[in-house]
Simulated scan of single mutants.
Amino acid sequence: MKQIYLVDDDDDDRLLARQALESVAEEIEIVELTNGYQLLAVLEAAPSVEPAMVLMDMNMPLVNGIEALAALKSRDDWRHIPVVMFSTTENPKFVEKAYQLGVNAYIVKPASFEGYTRMAQAVTLCFLNRYMPRGGEFYTDNDIAKNIVIIEDNPDHAVLMKFLLKKNAPKLNVVFQTSQESAVSFFQSLGEKASAAIDLIILDLYLPDREQGLDLLVWLRSTFMERGIPAVPIIVLSASSHQRDIKASYGLQANAYLTKTAEPAESFSYLTDLCSYWSDTISLPANR
């Protein structure tokens, strides 16, 4: 049973979010809270009980979403908890501020229950490791090809990923790197404009050791920050389901962590949906 802390002062929005989550995800427990103060108080009161994720509104009384996010990401014992902010505001300044503070994803509140279901599918895949096929073909808001970098040292997995992505999302421009060293060389060779054109990075944690994957995650974050480029979403896709690896990845600002299944083809069949969610459901900083 995975817990989701749903934090929103609007009763109707909480109801829609709860119904959507319960319609697509099994074995979840939703804890409803109405402001950031309650969220921080609950976490403080039961430090041994952690949610699988926090889904939080921005505009709330007492302690708003931005303030609660800042408090969560400033503490070593809470930094690894994934936080998805969903808000009515599309203001780029607020979106950028949320990512600067370490939010894992930002979603503009949908206008329909269908939109809430889409949001629930996205967070279920990205943060709960529950694979719920969306169905249909990959699509984006425009015809511009999306640029994806996949860092995967297992050649068999790389071949399978290439095949499925080419089959299901032919418009995607996918670049594969096979090691920490090759990935560093690739990104170092890019100029600022080319780096800013990357829409998503999918990173295998064990390259072949976890230290290499974690070091690369840190290097990528610092490199993009030094270049003044808005945060590129980094999704860790690993065979490890160990909490140590999951917490370490989130603590170092991975946007999401997905576990490969025993049958790789099953995990990789959802790469298309993963790319689609980060393209058309989740809002990113301006120029991203």
Rank of each mutant, 00 (worst) to 15 (best):
R227A: 07
E226T: 13
E114P: 04
A25H: 06
I229N: 00
L55W: 12
K93H: 12
N59E: 14
V95C: 05
Y257S: 01
Y99V: 07
P92E: 13
A286E: 15
A25T: 13
M132C: 11
D8G: 00
D8W: 03
R14Y: 09
T272M: 14
A254D: 11
K73Q: 09
D9V: 02
I28T: 12
F176P: 08
K166F: 06
G36V: 03
P285C: 01
N173R: 01
L252P: 11
I234V: 14
L216T: 00
K73W: 09
A25W: 10
D215N: 07
S87A: 10
G191E: 00
L62A: 15
M58D: 15
D245H: 10
E67G: 00
N168C: 13
L252N: 15
G228K: 12
A70L: 08
G213I: 06
I150N: 01
S276E: 15
R221A: 04
K166P: 05
L55R: 13
Q121S: 07
A46V: 03
F113A: 06
Q243C: 14
D76M: 13
E96L: 02
P82T: 04
P264E: 01
L15P: 01
Q100S: 11
R118I: 05
F224W: 09
I202N: 03
Y131H: 02
S283L: 11
D141V: 09
Q212S: 07
L15T: 07
R118W: 06
E114L: 09
G36H: 12
N64G: 15
F176Q: 04
R118M: 05
Y5W: 02
S222F: 10
V63W: 10
L21A: 08
L43F: 06
Y131Q: 00
A158S: 14
G213T: 08
G191Y: 00
T259C: 04
H157E: 04
N147W: 00
S179T: 02
V42Y: 08
P82G: 06
V218A: 00
F176S: 11
F86V: 07
N287M: 00
A68I: 02
S195K: 11
S185I: 01
V83C: 12
R244H: 05
F224E: 11
K167I: 13
Y99A: 11
I234N: 07
P110V: 01
A17E: 04
S179E: 00
G251W: 01
W219A: 04
N255P: 05
S182K: 05
D245A: 01
D13C: 05
G102N: 06
I282D: 04
S189D: 09
E263M: 01
